[in-house]
Design a protein around this nucleic acid. Structure first.
Lengths: 206, 206
DNA sequence: TCGTTGCGAAACTCTATCGTATCGAAACTT
DNA sequence: AAGTTTCGATACGATAGAGTTTCGCAACGA
């Protein structure tokens, strides 16, 4: 008999158990390096081991390749969407866009975003995981707000919520990504986007 | 005297002239490899030389480093924006979004887009060049259409054109990038985006 | 105590690529 | 014809990282 039943009834193998601390340190080091702007392809196991203060063996024992490790590292990220539902639709949308803009200031968020966008082609599993943990929850929060607005009459009953969501999220990301880097991003951009979206581009008919 | 005046009055140095064909082959090979999904950091001079059918020497003689080569390669791309101005603002905007969607189908466009987005942090010169040749002309086309719409009364006089442009471009890119890859991107997405944007999210007041 | 497994560190072999140098041939100017 | 420069090809040493193995120690169960 080489195993033992723990209190939870889980079979535990003989020998020294794997260090959870080491595991966390490895994941954390991976995210740190990615956050420093290192791309997935440039990311070296040796650098991760060095930063985490562990031996390479310890990494290879747990993950067979780099992609698996990066997938797990991304999966460990918690989606930080503290959107307070409850205000008007306008307020909720502004709050949401403010969160996005705020996130895009952090180096780590930007780099991980970049990885997710770039490596869509080469690392499908990675992209899928990212969609799951970062995109999907945000989608659903916004969709919920929009649907609530339709129910309450604040928004058109025939509003295409998918398209509307894309316009809002896309607009803020577009500006963060592509606007002239010389000029600071306008502080009130979230408000401006939401208000233009709500009003529409056409003039009100008399 | 080691040089000679050519017909154009340009001083030409002695010796065998550099082959323009080789130069083009190198740039083309670089774009090919990038289009195949190879990132800038993984891109090797040897691979470029092999694909272009030239010696490494020929590359090093012209470019001192990889980034310079990639910058020149990107610069050689012509912005393909055959937007027919002249229709209604709605039609022009739909046409523009159709072009973007169409471009995003091509592997090469997608990869180069990715590079531009990812390497913003690490290769500022590269990002700047990309902004210049790919983003700026598109910005200006859309801005021109929107301003024309304001003049003609098709759009609100107080429309925030910067924000409006971000909403349109951002929306199509958002959907192309982040929508569920299982389901095909709706054929009439450009129309839907433009129409929602023109109408606005709020219901018409009675 | 003993067997087993994980630990970090280090050494190791492979492979890829870098950037340079050298070669004979080719393409020019003078 | 002589001189200069580029051409593609090839070889070179240097570096970096991959993935494996070994080592001595630590942590666990029996």
């Amino acid at each position: 008999m080489k195993t033992q039943q723990t209190a939870e009834g889980v079979a535990r193998p003989a020998g020294r158990p794997r260090s959870e601390k080491a595991e966390k340190a490895i994941v954390e080091a991976t995210l740190d390096l990615l956050g420093d702007g290192i791309g997935v392809s440039e990311l070296s196991i040796e650098a991760i081991a060095a930063r985490a203060g562990v031996g390479k063996t310890t990494i290879y024992r747990r993950w067979t390749n780099k992609e698996d490790l990066v997938v797990d590292a991304l999966a460990s990220l918690k989606p930080p969407i503290p959107l307070s539902r409850g205000g008007s639709v306008r307020d909720d949308l502004v709050t949401y866009l403010r969160v996005i803009r705020e996130e895009s200031r952090h180096q780590r968020t930007r780099c991980i975003m970049n990885i997710a966008m770039t490596d869509t082609e080469r690392h499908p599993r990675l992209a899928e995981r990212f969609r799951e943990i970062a995109i999907k929850p945000r989608r659903e929060v916004v969709l919920a707000v929009l649907r609530r607005g339709i129910d309450s009459g604040e928004l058109r009953a025939d509003l295409d919520v998918e398209v509307a969501m894309g316009m809002l999220s896309g607009a803020i990301i577009w500006h963060v990504k592509w606007s002239d880097p010389d000029e600071e991003i306008s502080e009130d951009l979230p408000e401006r986007i939401v208000d233009e979206a709500l009003k529409g581009f056409r003039p009100r008919e008399a």
